[in-house]
């Protein structure tokens, strides 16, 4: 249930503006990969190209290849809808559907892909997904209540439950803890650790301690200046990036000397 991602010579444009330049990266299955870097360096933009969510922004386009176990996401005839059902995403701010109950939120994606699902199967899936997101014990007595009534951290875990309910190959997380308090952050980090047993996880974070805590590999992105494209500076094992980086800019960033 998890696949590898290989990115080859990827450029991302907003209309004519080159936002991210020439990224090559290989992400292993069943691992956690963190993208770090200063604001505006293109890491979130790049993350979105991994499930074609950047296409939501008018004028955004890519050149190059993103291979999911060898299949190009940008190949001819590939439907972005199919791509997104295999590569799930969790956003910066928790975004459960406010008009749906907790239960319906978990089932939202499943009902899209598989219209017929029996009540028993649905119940089992809801429990499995919520347990997978470490949320079951907190919400099992109020599944019919709206998801927007939960705390921020619980909402974010509900979004993770919703993402894993469709059994994706890869889960992308765009700064999933930046709107959360430390306790909720800890809960999400524990969860990320569990998730990598089954899924390929890619996480963008501003918090370097978080990257060091949760990831197996870390990629450092940077920009030369305003208006310049973001680039992948260095990619390697997390402990190497944090203790013995080979590029000066990486060392400056992880040691807090800029950014």
């Amino acid at each position: 249930m998890s696949k590898r991602i290989d990115v080859k010579d990827l450029n991302v444009y907003y209309s004519k503006f080159l936002a991210v330049e020439d990224v090559n990266i290989n992400i292993d299955p069943k691992s956690v990969t963190a993208f770090i870097g200063p604001s505006g360096c293109g890491k979130s933009t790049f993350l979105r190209t991994l499930n074609r969510m950047h296409e939501v922004i008018p004028g955004a386009r890519v050149e190059g290849e993103v291979l999911l176990d060898g299949d190009n996401l940008y190949g001819p005839g590939v439907d972005p809808v199919t791509v997104r059902s295999q590569i799930g995403m969790v956003f910066q701010r928790p975004n459960p559907f406010p008009t749906m109950s907790i239960r319906d939120n978990v089932l939202a994606g499943v009902k899209l892909n598989n219209h017929k699902i029996s009540k028993g199967e649905a119940d089992a899936l809801v429990e499995r997904s919520l347990r997978g997101a470490n949320l079951w014990n907190e919400v099992k007595d109020r599944l019919a209540k709206p998801g927007s009534g939960l705390s921020g951290g619980q909402q974010q875990r509900l979004c993770i439950a919703r993402a894993i309910a469709v059994e994706p190959q890869v889960i992308l997380m765009d700064e999933p803890c930046s709107a959360l308090d430390p306790i909720s952050t800890l809960a999400i980090e524990d969860l990320i650790n569990d998730l990598k047993d089954q899924y390929t996880v890619v996480i963008v974070t501003h918090n370097m301690q978080q990257a060091a805590r949760v990831s197996d590999k870390t990629a450092f992105f940077n920009i030369a200046g305003t208006g310049k494209p973001g680039k992948l500076i260095e990619y390697g094992e997390t402990h190497t990036i944090f203790s013995n980086p080979s590029v000066k800019a990486t060392e400056d960033y992880v040691s807090g000397r800029f950014g």
Partner: peptide, 13 residues
């Protein structure tokens, strides 16, 4: 909200 639209799209809607 863009957030909710993106939530749906990211699920493969």
């Amino acid at each position: 909200p863009k957030l909710h639209e993106e939530a749906a799209l990211a699920l493969g809607a």
